[in-house]
Amino acid sequence: MRSGILLAVIISSFLLFQACSSKPSEKKQSTSSTENSGYKLVAYVAGYRDYDFTQIDADGITHINYAFGNIRNGQAVFDTTKIDGKNLTPVDLEKLVALKTKNPNLKILISIGGWSWSGGFSDAALTEQSRAVFAKSCAKMVNDYRLDGIDLDWEYPNQPGAGNTYRPEDVQNFTLMLQKVRESLDEMARAEGKEKHYLLTIATGADMAYVDNTNLGEVQKYLDFINIMTYDFYNGWHNTNGHHSNLSASANPDKDMNSVLNAVSMHLKAGVPAKKLNLGIPFYGRIWKGVDARDNEILFNKAETVGMGIDYVDFCENINANGFTRFWDETAQAPYLWNPVEKTFISYEDEQSIALKINYLKEQGLGGVMFWEYAADKDKKLLNAVRQGLKNKASTE
C-alpha cells in the first residue's frame, strides 16, 4: 500500500470491455452480490481521501481496512496528522463500524504503517519489551475503536522503504512482533468470551526482496490471512513504462519486472497456505508521459516521467476515446492505454484482467481478493467486476 501514491491527474474516458483488440468494445454489465462463495473481499479505504465513508457500498465486502494508523513512541496510535493535505479523524472509524447495520458480517480493521508511516516498525520490533508494548497498544486500539482486528503494513522489513529505519534483525523480529500481537489479541478475546476472535493480517510485498527479508512460513502461523500487494511492478521509481499489475510474465524477460503468478508462487514456496493468500487488485493506474515509443513497440520505453499513480475514476473515460486506444497484452494478460499524439501510456486494471485473476485464484485455491482503494473507483465499475467474479464459478477452459 501507499499513503500518497494516487496522483489526481484528470483525464476523461469511458469504461468498455474488449477481449484482445484496440477497437472500441461493448459495455459489460456487472452486478453485485452479498454471496462471495466463501471468498474474502478485502477493501482498503484511505482516511486521507475526500470521501464520505457512509456512502460505501459494503455489499459483498467481507473486510474493510482503514489506512492508516501510525507508530509513535513504539505504540500503535490513531494519528490525526495530515496526509495529502487532509487530517485523519477517528470519526471515519465510527462510520465504518456503522456499515455493519447493512452488512452484519463485515469486519473492520485498522492498517498500521503504509509507505509513509512504517518508520517506527523496526524500533518497535527490536526487543522483547518493545514488542510487548507495541502488541498491547494494538489490542488497546482494537478495543478503543470497537474494531475486529489489526492489519500491519510494514514497508518493508530490512529494507529502507521511504527512508525508514531498518536493520538485519527485522527479519526475525517481524515474526516475533506478530507472535506477540497475536498473543495480546487472543488474551483480550479470552477475557471477553471464548467465542471471540480478533483478526491479525498483514500486507506483503510481491517481489523476492520482500520474501527474502521475512520468514513467511513462520509469520503465517500467527495470521488469519495475507494481502499480497500484487501491483506497482512498474511504478513511481521507473522512468520506463510497463505493466504494473500483470497476471503473467511479459514476453520480454529482460524487461519484465514481476507478475501476479510469480508473487503467489514465491509466497507458496515460502510456506504460506494458499487459503491464507488474497490477491491485490489496484483500483488505480500508473501513467507515463513523453514515452519514446518506436516502431510500434509501445511497452518498455524510456519516458519523460516516472509512473505516477492515477485513480481509475480519473482516466476511465479515456478508454478508446480522446486519442487513447485500449490494447491487450496477450502474454502478460494485462490491458494498457496508449495515446500516440500525447505519447502517454497508462497501465491499469479492467474487467477482463480482473476476471482472469479471479479465475486464477479459484483454480489455485487462494483465499480471495484485496483491493486498493475504494475511493479510486467510487462508481464501482471495478468493484462490481470483482464481486461478480467471486460469485461466479471458475472457468474450466
Rank of each mutant, 00 (worst) to 15 (best):
L99I: 09
I108R: 07
N103T: 13
D123K: 15
G114F: 01
L99N: 05
L106C: 03
E128W: 10
L109F: 00
L93F: 05
V97Y: 03
D92S: 05
S122C: 09
T127Y: 08
V97L: 03
S130T: 15
G114A: 07
F121E: 03
L109Q: 08
E128A: 15
L96D: 03
Q129Y: 12
L99H: 12
G113V: 04
S122P: 03
K102G: 06
D92R: 02
L126Y: 15
G120H: 07
L126W: 14
V97P: 02
L109K: 08
K102C: 00
G114M: 07
I110S: 08
N105R: 12
S130Q: 11
A124D: 00
G114K: 09
L126S: 15
S118R: 07
L93K: 01
G120N: 08
K95C: 10
T127I: 05
S111E: 06
I110W: 04
F121G: 09
F121H: 07
E94V: 12
R131D: 05
K107A: 01
S130W: 11
L106N: 06
T101Q: 15
A124R: 09
Q129N: 14
A132V: 08
A125M: 15
T127P: 01
W117F: 10
N103P: 07
S111D: 11
K107T: 00
S130M: 02
L96S: 02
W117K: 12
I110G: 02
E128P: 07
S116H: 13
K107Q: 07
G113C: 00
K95W: 12
S118D: 10
G119S: 15
E94F: 08
S122R: 10
R131N: 06
W115R: 01
L99T: 05
D92F: 01
S116P: 02
S111H: 02
A125S: 14
I112W: 09
D92K: 11
G113A: 06
G120S: 09
E94G: 01
